[in-house]
């Protein structure tokens, strides 16, 4: 029970301080569930993001469900997800109620112009942390370069990239294993 409450509170905290959606959640996830709580590893987080992008539903929710499930089973998955959406429910309901006064505030506009910078710098920092475990050899570097370029330059759904990388991974893994034997 305590562990479930801990999951709910931790994910509510993550939901409340994530600006910019699922990808921007990564640095905060690393801090809270990898470094502080040590519920999952950086490798786990990468796997969840990869799966979260190919399965139905939005990435932030899929990742939260995964981590919750890994920590405390099915109920854990449910609690983590409820936790991460809880702040949105409150904040958005309040904003929707007072919309006009808020969207015209010059102060808030300026504040967000600063927050936007921190969002991508934090993502950059998070990617650098993943780099060591994600890109371990030439195959990894090649996949990273191809997927990054295609994702920036084209507007294809990430689903294709993830499937491509998965198939390539299976093939090269088999080849490498054979070479070792």
């Amino acid at each position: 029970m305590r562990a479930l409450l801990d999951l709910f509170i931790t994910f509510a905290k993550i939901g409340a301080i994530t600006f910019g959606g699922g990808y921007a959640m990564l640095p905060i996830l690393q801090r809270e569930v990898v470094e502080k709580k040590q519920w999952v590893t950086n490798e786990d987080v990468m796997d969840y993001y990869a799966i979260g992008q190919t399965t139905p539903g939005i990435i932030a929710i899929n990742t939260a469900t995964f981590i919750g499930q890994k920590t405390k089973g099915t109920l854990g998955g449910v609690m983590a997800t409820l936790g991460v959406v809880f702040p949105s429910l409150i904040i958005i309901s309040v904003i929707a109620y007072f919309l006009n006064t808020i969207s015209e505030s010059e102060l808030l506009r300026s504040a967000f112009s600063g927050i936007r910078v921190s969002v991508y710098i934090l993502i950059l920092q998070a990617v650098l942390k993943l780099w060591k475990t994600a890109v371990m050899d030439k195959v990894g570097l090649m996949i990273f370069t191809v997927v990054f370029s295609l994702a920036v330059l084209t507007s294809y759904s990430p689903v294709y990239f993830v499937i491509f990388a998965g198939v390539l991974g299976v093939m090269s893994f088999r080849l490498l294993n054979k070479a070792v034997k």
């Binding site: 990808y23 990564l26 490798e43 990468m46 796997d47 993001y49 990869a50 799966i51 992008q53 993502i123 998070a126 990617v127 993943l130 780099w131 475990t133 994600a134 890109v135 195959v139 990894g140 570097l141 996949i143 990273f144 370069t145 191809v146 997927v147 990054f148 994702a151 990430p158 990239f161 993830v162 491509f164 990388a165 998965g166 198939v167 390539l168 991974g169 299976v170 090269s172 893994f173």
Partner: peptide, 11 residues
């Protein structure tokens, strides 16, 4: 093995 670099690249 293939998904991790792809996932990092998408982020």
């Amino acid at each position: 093995y293939g998904l991790r670099p792809a996932s990092t690249a998408l982020i």
